[in-house]
């Protein structure tokens, strides 16, 4: 073949484009996007005593005649039965409360790390990330021993004389809050830290030079400029917590349901795949808004940086 060098170059670049974009795209399409289509389809079908335990949406009734049955019962059930509505509201509430606590605790921590001496920053940050590398499950488990009625915290409080009968903390909503904040705090601190270190310190010096007192300078300059970090951190906590399973299962009370746990139960205990799918679809619908919001923000930041 008689090719000019540049034609070869263009073919190489086309090939690399195909590999770099195509392969991950294909994988995600097959194992991330397609599954949702199937979930949607099963959420519209009826449960059945079969393997797998649901009826297909379509059937070949006669030769060449396709019958499609759409079943909205699962969604009706979710809407009508208080349990599900309560579980959704409770999940959102827990996520909201925990996000706020993470923010209130995480912001000062991120700020303290970002304003620490340069050589201290990385070790301090490593200490935030480190627990993340140990098992999540085991870290949640650690709290069982602490929060138990005859656990370490109660013993400590009794010894201090603050209380005279042990408190019931394990298997309450409080335990869920503690567990979630404990597990998700690093996700709040990291984006906040990244944002705060990027802030130009001369801005604060300029504010001080213009007669602004430190607290006011913080409220007027630092806080507004760290908004992207606050939003990113909050989304990283809020979105996954809404669907959290392990923490409410191990630390929460059996009565206060969250969607993640409910889905698990419907799926594994009740073998109601269509209902579990419908729950997943509703949950997904709830999470799309904050997710798209976060993605937008990220894109704006990327464009602002270049």
């Amino acid at each position: 073949m008689n090719q000019t060098p540049n034609m070869q170059a263009r073919q190489t670049s086309r090939l690399s484009r195909l590999v770099n974009i195509g392969v991950p795209y294909f994988w995600l399409g097959l194992f991330f996007l397609l599954p949702f289509v199937i979930v949607l389809q099963i959420s519209l079908s009826e449960p059945a005593l079969a393997q797998p335990p649901y009826r297909l949406l379509w059937e070949w009734v006669e030769e060449g005649l396709l019958q499609i049955q759409i079943n909205l019962q699962n969604f009706m059930l979710i809407w009508e039965d208080d349990i599900y509505l309560y579980a959704f509201l409770n999940s959102l509430w827990v996520a909201l409360v925990c996000t706020l606590i993470c923010l209130l605790l995480g912001y000062p921590m991120a700020y303290a790390i970002a304003t620490a001496r340069e050589r201290h920053r990385i070790p301090l940050l490593m200490l935030i990330i480190l627990p993340f590398w140990t098992s999540f499950l085991i870290r949640v488990y650690a709290w069982i021993g602490i929060l138990n009625t005859n656990g370490l915290l109660n013993h400590f409080l009794l010894w201090l004389g603050v209380i005279d009968t042990p408190l019931q903390i394990l298997h309450t909503q409080t335990a869920v809050y503690i567990g979630v904040v404990y597990s998700y705090l690093p996700f709040m601190i990291l984006p906040l830290y990244a944002n705060l270190t990027r802030l130009d310190p001369t801005l604060l010096e300029a504010a001080a030079d213009l007669g602004c007192r430190p607290l006011r300078a913080f409220m007027r300059v630092t806080l507004p400029l760290s908004m992207p970090g606050i939003v990113a951190g909050s989304m990283l906590v809020f979105i996954p917590v809404v669907g959290e399973f392990v923490i409410p299962d191990l630390l929460g009370s059996p009565g206060s349901l969250m969607v993640g746990k409910l889905m698990w139960t419907e799926f594994f205990s009740n073998k109601d795949w269509p209902l579990a799918s419908a729950l997943a679809i509703v949950l997904l619908g709830l999470l799309v808004i904050p997710f798209v919001l976060m993605q937008r923000l990220q894109q704006n930041l990327d464009e602002g940086r270049t």
Binding site: F36, L236, I239, G243, A280
Partner: peptide, 10 residues
């Protein structure tokens, strides 16, 4: 950010 239960189920 996708909750694990959704990824697992789907």
């Amino acid at each position: 950010v996708m909750p694990d239960v959704i990824i697992g189920l789907s």
